[in-house]
């Protein structure tokens, strides 16, 4: 059941990225380009997603545990630190350079553009590099 639920959640997430065309990097760059012919679509994707997600978190507060797991695992950290801000700045630079972020890159692989595969491969290397850098410190 857990596997089925996880696959369903992933599938619905991916369908959302496909329906909203966020799997198209040109669409994302169109949003990020405030000085150009601005396409506000991405902000509406967030406006559609956040209230539904917030409903989920609100319903979760009324329960002791999730339906299929022993406990809710919210991210623990609550302090805004330099690491968070530096990481977000690096991520944003990469996002603006290509128009891909992790979800749309993965959900876009099956569309067959080699560029999506190249970006995703480099992203995995970047993640591994961070892992190696962390464990070497």
């Amino acid at each position: 059941m857990v596997m089925l639920a996880a696959a369903l959640a992933g599938l619905v997430f991916g369908l959302g990225l496909v329906v909203s065309a966020m799997v198209d990097p040109a669409k994302v760059l169109g949003f990020l380009d405030l000085a150009g012919d601005w396409d506000p679509s991405l902000i509406l994707v967030m406006a559609g997603a956040i209230p539904v997600a917030a409903l989920g978190f609100a319903l979760g507060r009324k329960r002791d545990r999730p339906l299929l797991a022993p406990d809710f695992q919210a991210p623990g950290a609550d302090r805004v630190d330099r690491r968070l801000l530096r990481g977000a700045a690096l991520f944003g630079a990469g996002w603006g350079l290509a128009g891909y972020c992790p979800g749309p890159a993965l959900a876009g692989l099956a569309l067959g553009a080699w560029q999506t595969w190249a970006f995703t491969a480099a992203m995995l290397v970047g993640m591994a590099a961070h892992e190696a850098w962390q464990s070497s410190r």
Partner: peptide
């Protein structure tokens, strides 16, 4: 965009309420 966003929000809701 709104429809796709609602699906993404639904996926987040499912992840939280089913899997935590």
């Amino acid at each position: 965009a709104l429809l796709g966003g609602a699906l993404i929000g639904t996926a987040a809701l499912l992840s939280w309420l089913l899997l935590g």
